[in-house]
Design a binder for these strands. Structure first.
Lengths: 211, 211
DNA sequence: AAATGAATTAAACAAATGTTTAAAAATTAT
DNA sequence: ATAATTTTTAAACATTTGTTTAATTCATTT
């Protein structure tokens, strides 16, 4: 059933996807109602199934696209041949804080969904290779051999970096309460972290910082 | 309707709560069916409403108890007058890695729920006071004044510590895939972090580690 | 302009789901 | 032992919710 009016089609199709994206990302699959998607998209309920067959099929599209968006550019940043390990960290941190500032619900959405359906979803992204065999990882190991960095299991390093990077966005409502921060103040803190996380994470593994 | 057979009563009531706890914590409120709770608890469906009035009331009890469990002992650890800042970090890290090892679903459960209902839930826990006015925070600021630690916004420090501590459990399925780890290997890594996180987090803020 | 096909709509359907009811069973009190 | 109360059960109920149907509107083609 290919349409003959692609603009209008894609317009409604895109309206549905956008509404679905917002609702699925903030409320999850089960708490999101087909009727809420339709209302938010400003379309008739039946159009949802007309365009996407089922709520579940629509959801699969959204989660996949969301993960693709999240991992977009990661491989490039990890394998940029012209940058040092520390430069890569700067780049990655800045990139992801920017992304998460604009899409703060993505991490909990992705991680919750992976938790419910690990094999299915993880099989579609070869993160193991992308990460562990990257130039970034090679440079870390190199730095450890050179005694520039303390001996650390690269996986621990990844956990620390991702934890510092992603956790504040997952826990933002709690952190805002604890720090008595409004939205702007919180975002200002997140922006500070673009520069600070690289300093902290590198300090945490540097062997002899008193050069 | 107070019961006259407290042991048996609490037994079924507790069976329901335990089943509800497991299901709510792993699947969330919306994806958990009353019938699944009843089946898992081995009781008749109607007993759920007999004991707890509604699925929602049962859920409120579970989320509250879960949060209480999670914050249990935190205040004491933060305000132990006889321990240093670094000792407190050791204690807190070990305590929470132990807790999270046994209850890996708690963080995503709590953080998701807070995200849906921030005011309601956060108002019931005075985390701001517990944390920001703790001896732990005082000791951090003291260390900064003494130039022992770099100037860091205490909130940033909290984010880093909690990120390192909690994030790996939230992202465990992904990390297992990336690191090709089975359950035991993952838990071994988490156990290593009991000793390592204090080292890393302190290195990240120490001013002159070349003593 | 008529005809064809796509897009949209209102309504209905069927299954799932939280909740209630009324009777039976089990327990406790008299 | 009997009566009263609590606990448990099977069934029904009322909504919600994902999906489908059939008719209508809209756009495109001939």
């Amino acid at each position: 059933m290919k349409s003959k009016s692609p603009e209008i089609d894609q317009s409604t199709e895109e309206k549905i996807k956008q509404a679905a994206r917002e609702l699925f990302q903030t409320k999850g699959f089960s708490a999101t109602r087909s009727r809420d998607i339709a209302t938010k998209a400003g379309i008739n309920l039946a159009l949802l199934n007309y365009y996407f067959r089922s709520k579940e099929k629509l959801f699969n599209i959204i989660i996949l696209e969301t993960m693709q968006e999240f991992f977009l550019h990661l491989s490039e940043m990890l394998n940029d041949g012209s940058s040092s390990f520390e430069e890569k960290i700067n780049k990655i941190v800045a990139n992801y804080i920017e992304l998460l500032t604009n899409n703060p619900d993505i991490p909990i959405f992705i991680l919750s969904e992976i938790r419910q359906n690990p094999e299915e979803l993880l099989s579609k992204f070869k993160m193991k290779e992308a990460l562990m065999r990257s130039n970034f990882m090679f440079q870390l190991k190199e730095g450890i051999e050179r005694k520039e960095y303390i001996p650390i299991n690269p996986l621990h390093f990844i956990m620390n970096l991702l934890g510092m990077l992603i956790f504040p966005f997952i826990a933002s409502p709690m952190l805002k309460k604890i720090g008595e921060l409004n939205k702007e103040e919180f975002l200002k803190l997140m922006n500070e972290r673009k520069n600070s996380i690289p300093v902290w994470i590198l300090n945490s593994i540097k062997t002899n910082p008193s050069k």
